[in-house]
């Protein structure tokens, strides 16, 4: 039970990271981007590549930090991956979504986002193979943090949880305390009015894709560290990410934060009562229940 709670919080933090980017994108561009989850996969694999590169180039980088399976190589690789995945998201927008936005409706963009997701996921499968991988092949031993012998927490998990919370706190400060944050929120709330105040819509859209892609990369690396890397990790997470945004209310960053934890905890606790095979269906049940009782989520507004 306590173990499930902890696992749920950990998965929840990762889902929150992914869902925040997704909800920002859905708010500013007004379409459900089904390729967002694939950015997690892209982020995890980009980090995998640079981790290997740096470990080979600078052997000192390959030593592990304490009892973590994290190395300096992986840390630098993750930072690079955040930038590259952000750039991938911007590139997808420039090549595809921007053109469709200008010539067609939001639902056409949803169709296209499924196509983009298929291409991204399967190109990764072709490049890296269908098998699962890990950043480190050593088994990280569970460390007993509490006195309760039933609660096993790996150092990696604890580290990931702290870092995810820090990243989201930083984003929250940016969104609520800086001119950039004001501009981003203004442009999502009321694009014409924000533009009349001199905010550059195109620039804000680009920045939103960068932030969304960067957070997705971080979520992807964290998921890979605590689970494994596979080409279908994005596909397996996509519905949970949408469930998190819907629970929180589409467009609400604090909502996505809380929504991630709700979905993570619900999936983890459901394992106690429902056979694990049904777990893929759980986000859908959460979505239906939310839409039925609280159609605009916890913090969303009717649009």
């Amino acid at each position: 039970m306590i173990q499930s709670l902890f696992d749920g919080i950990l998965v929840g933090a990762i889902l929150s990271l992914g869902a925040i980017g997704l909800t920002m994108m859905m708010h500013i561009l007004r379409f459900a981007n089904f390729s967002h989850a694939e950015l997690l996969t892209v982020g995890a694999y980009v980090a995998l590549v640079f981790d290997a590169v740096f470990s080979a180039l600078v052997p000192a980088f390959a030593t592990k930090w304490g009892s973590l399976s994290l190395t300096a190589a992986l840390a630098v690789a993750t930072l690079l991956s955040i930038a590259i995945t952000g750039a991938t998201a911007v590139a997808a927008d420039r090549l595809i979504f921007k053109r469709l936005r200008e010539n067609a409706g939001p639902l056409t963009m949803v169709f296209a986002s499924f196509g983009v997701a298929l291409v991204m996921r399967n190109v990764i499968s072709l490049l890296f193979g269908l098998q699962t991988m890990h950043y480190s092949n050593d088994i990280a031993f569970a460390m007993v943090i509490s006195l309760d012998p039933l609660l096993l927490i790996k150092p990696d998990q604890f580290f990931v949880l702290i870092l995810a919370l820090t990243a989201m706190a930083a984003l929250h400060l940016v969104m609520t305390r800086t001119p950039l944050g004001f501009a981003l929120r203004a442009i999502s709330e009321n694009p014409p009015l924000a533009q009349a105040n001199g905010i550059n819509l195109k620039r804000m859209v680009t920045i939103t894709w960068m932030i969304g892609g960067g957070l997705a990369a971080l979520a992807g690396v964290f998921y890979a560290l605590t689970n494994q890397i596979s080409p279908i990790m994005g596909r397996d997470l996509v519905l949970s990410l949408f469930a998190a945004t819907i629970v929180g209310g589409i467009g609400s960053v604090p909502g996505a934060f809380i929504g991630g934890f709700v979905v993570g905890l619900a999936s983890s606790l459901a394992l106690l009562v429902i056979p694990s095979g049904y777990n893929p269906a759980l986000p859908f049940m959460i979505i239906l229940i939310t839409l039925y009782f609280r159609p605009f989520g916890l913090f969303g507004e009717e649009r």
Binding site: M26, R30, A32, F242, P283, I287, P295
Partner: peptide
């Protein structure tokens, strides 16, 4: 959008 997500679900 919600119908898209719900039907996919």
């Amino acid at each position: 959008d919600y119908l898209a997500i719900a039907t996919f679900g």
